[in-house]
Design a protein around this nucleic acid. Structure first.
Lengths: 169, 169
DNA sequence: TATTTGGTTCTCTATTTGCAGAACTAACTG
DNA sequence: CAGTTAGTTCTGCAAATAGAGAACCAAATA
């Protein structure tokens, strides 16, 4: 008679990385940096942890332990990070845990998105120009100027990555 | 006997601009755009109002009336905008009112600051690289790559403005 | 079938935020 | 000096946020 003997089921990576004070302090600072960008506190801390963790992949449980927060908070934060496409998880045969990692691979796409996002103000500038009267031409000109620059800027983004690539080789 | 007859004291520009629905709706959208950038709601609305207002300069009172908010809220928001160097006020002889305007003139400096700000993540990336072990070289390499790009990017910012200037002429 | 594991969802609460309204101040006016 | 004007600061509250803890669920195990 055969019994199913799971290879790893009783042997998940249960030892967790030891974080030094330096690690912890860096995680906090990365946390507040992201808070300033409008993210909720724990989300920023998790990004910090995933960055400094030597494995790059961190289990749900370990996040809970390392950051000393509740499972519910971690669950919500990870759902958010995945929705924003900043984070993915992988699994391992015979181990039901999920191991979360940053999608560091597409930093190019992410950064480009951020640039386009800040240039998004152009849309508003243009709408503003449409509703403005001719009364204050100086003001209008400066806005037109800014809008033109933003258009130029957006077009330049791909070239920027190109030049970086060439300059690297 | 001479009496002091103030030229404008009883004649400040008391008629306020009429905002259409389109104006109001645009102000709201500009407001939420800035909220997403981490500003408090009223600050974004004021930016919107100063953008669409035909005069470019708007008195404290008119801000209160147009946006239908309290004086205290406006006072705090304007203090904030001035602290952030996004806004200035001017006065007129014989008129004690302050007329607030966006510092639209230095959009170049502002935009450059925003770009540098998003590249500030490099500082953290580098610190992270210093505390990371050699364990996950692939992860480390991607981070190094990203950091290199951010360094390159920062250096490119002035050139970007240069190219825009040339391309305009 | 009962229990454990890994995680999600729901409910509740402490904290923070954003603003109103009142009290206040400082400069000017009658 | 009493009143007005223009704006600031203080006090308090309603709403939003962030997270704890418990209840819950589904898959795997005993």
């Amino acid at each position: 008679m055969f019994t199913f003997v799971p290879l790893l089921a009783h042997n998940p990576n249960t030892t967790i990385m030891v974080l030094t004070e330096k690690h912890k302090e860096l995680i906090e600072r990365i946390g507040v940096f992201h808070e300033h960008k409008g993210m909720q506190p724990l989300v920023g801390r998790i990004i910090g942890l995933l960055l400094v963790h030597e494995d790059g992949e961190v289990s749900f449980d370990e996040i809970v332990e390392q950051l000393g927060v509740s499972k519910s908070a971690v669950s919500n934060a990870l759902t958010f990070l995945q929705a924003k496409d900043r984070c993915v998880y992988s699994t391992r045969p015979g181990d039901r845990k999920r191991y979360f990692a940053l999608k560091l691979s597409d930093w190019r796409a992410d950064f480009a998105k951020e640039l386009e996002n800040i240039a998004e103000i152009q849309k508003f500038i243009d709408e503003v120009l449409e509703v403005r009267t001719e009364k204050n031409q100086e003001f209008n000109c400066k806005m037109k100027d800014f809008s033109d620059f933003l258009g130029f800027f957006k077009k330049e983004i791909p070239a920027l990555f190109e030049r970086f690539k060439r300059q690297q080789a």
